[in-house]
Design a binder for these strands. Sequence first.
DNA 1: CAGTTTGGTGAACGGTGTAAACCGTAAACG
DNA 2: CGTTTACGGTTTACACCGTTCACCAAACTG
Lengths: 261, 261
Amino acid sequence: MSTDVQPTPASPASPQTRRERQREATYDEITRTSRTLLAEGSELSLRAVASRMGMTAPALYRYVASYQELVDLVAFEIDRAATERFAAAADTLPEDDYAGRLVLSATEFRMWALGNPREFGMVFANPIAEAACTRREMLTQVASGHLMTGQMRALWDHNHHAIPSLDELPPSVRESVLDPLIPAKVDDLPLEDRGLVWLYQQGWTTLYGVVALEVFGHMDPRVIESGDMFVHVVREFAPKLGLADDADRLEEMIRQRIARG
Amino acid sequence: MSTDVQPTPASPASPQTRRERQREATYDEITRTSRTLLAEGSELSLRAVASRMGMTAPALYRYVASYQELVDLVAFEIDRAATERFAAAADTLPEDDYAGRLVLSATEFRMWALGNPREFGMVFANPIAEAACTRREMLTQVASGHLMTGQMRALWDHNHHAIPSLDELPPSVRESVLDPLIPAKVDDLPLEDRGLVWLYQQGWTTLYGVVALEVFGHMDPRVIESGDMFVHVVREFAPKLGLADDADRLEEMIRQRIARG
DNA sequence: CAGTTTGGTGAACGGTGTAAACCGTAAACG
DNA sequence: CGTTTACGGTTTACACCGTTCACCAAACTG
C-alpha cells in the first residue's frame, strides 16, 4: 500500500523479496511433482505430492486451500504445457500457412488427449459450474483456447472468409461474442466482425466433441484408431473457414500426424 | 446344462429359486439406494450405500467385486432409467412423427444431462479403455444408444434420405458399420444400407459434443442457458437426415422443451 | 439329519483430505 | 541492534474411504 522506495514488490523481472521467490519456486515444484505423478499413472493426492517433495501433507495447505484447488492449479499448468505442444506443432509449418497451423494444432490436441486421457479429463472434463467465481474466471484464461482462437483469427485476417453478421445471431450469442466469457483475444476485433467469435465457438464445440468422445471411448475403437471421425468433422468444418478447397491437403496433414502416433 | 424337469432356472417369469429372487431384489436395492444417494448430491461410496441399506460395507462384496464394479452397475442402471425418460419424451408425439421423436429424445437427453451432471459424467464420461473386456461389452448395450439409433432407423425407413454408400466409406468405418461395436440394432439392416450407421455415429458425435461441452461448462454460460448452440448443431445436422425443410418446426419443438426447464 | 453354500458381521490395514496445536527460523520493524 | 511477527513446516488426530480376513448363522441340498 505504501509507495516509498521499497524493493519494488510488483516489478516484473525477479526483484521480489526473497521469500516471494522461494514461495513461487515451491509452487512450481508442487505443480511439477504433481504432473510427474500423473505422468507415472499414480493418483494425484496431497500426501503423494508432499512426500515426494520431502514434506508432509498438511504443509501443502500453506500453498493450496484444498485438494480441489491443487487439482485446479495443476490443471491450469497442464493446459499451459500442453498448449506449448500444440503451438510447437503449428510451428513446423511456415508462418503464413494459417489453415495448416490451425489444423495441426487441433490434431496435436487430439493426439495429446488420447495419449493423456487423465490430464484431458482434468482440464476439459471437470465441471466448472460449481465454485463459480474463481474457476469460471480461470476458464477465460485457458491457454489452449487462446492459441486456437488466435490461429482462427490469423486465418480470417488473411483470407476474410464469410462470417455471420451480428444481427443474424441469436441474442445470447450476440451477448457472448460482444463480451466473451470464454478464452478469446477479441479486444482488437471490431464489433461488427464479432460473428467470427461465433465461428470460434462452433469450431471448439466440434473439436471438443470428437476428442472427448474418442478419449472416453464411447466410439468404435477402430474408428478411433484410424482417426476417420476426426478427419470427417474437420473436413465438414473446413468450408466454414473458407477452406473448402484446402480440405484434401489438410486431411493429408492430419493423417500424417496420426500415422506418427 | 441338464435338461431334466427342474425348477427351470432360466424361465423368464419369476420361477427362480427363492434365493435367486432375494438376490436380485438386493441388487435392485443396491442400485436404487445408490441412485438416491447420487440424487441427493452425496458421494457414492460402498459404506454409504451399505449403511443406508442397513448393512455393512463388506457385505456388498457379495454382490460387486469392487467399487468400480458398483459404479459400472449403477451407471448402467442410470442409463436405463434416463432412457425411459428420453423415450417418454418422444411418446408425447404421434407415432409417425419420426423426426420429431428423434429430436425430442435428443433434447431430453440434453436437459437430463444438464440437470444431472454427475450422472452424465458417470455414464458418458468414464473412460472405457481400461478394463477393456467387460466394460467394452457393456458399451454395446447402452440403452440410450439403442433408443436413438432405433429412432434414426425408423426415420430412414420412412423417408429414405440419402446415405453414404459402403464403398465411399473409409476402411475402418466400413468395418465398424458392418460389425458394430457400439450400440445399434442393425441385424435387420441390409449390408448395402449400412452407410446409415455411419450417420448414426456422426449424429452421436455431434450430440455428445455439445452436451458434454455444456455439462462441463466449457462454453459461455449464456449460450448454455439459451440452448442456442444445441439448436445450432441440430439444425446443421438435420439436412443429413433429409430434414432440411423441417428445421424450423424442429427448432420450435426444441425451444419449447428448453423453455420448460 | 449332516453338509455345504450363501450372506452377513466385526475387526483391521493402509489409504485419503483436513483441522488443530505447536515450533523454529527468517523477515520486518522500532 | 534487539524484538516481534508471520511464515513454513511438523506431529497428532479425526473421519472417512476401499478392501481383506476370520468368523458365524441361517438357508438350502443331498
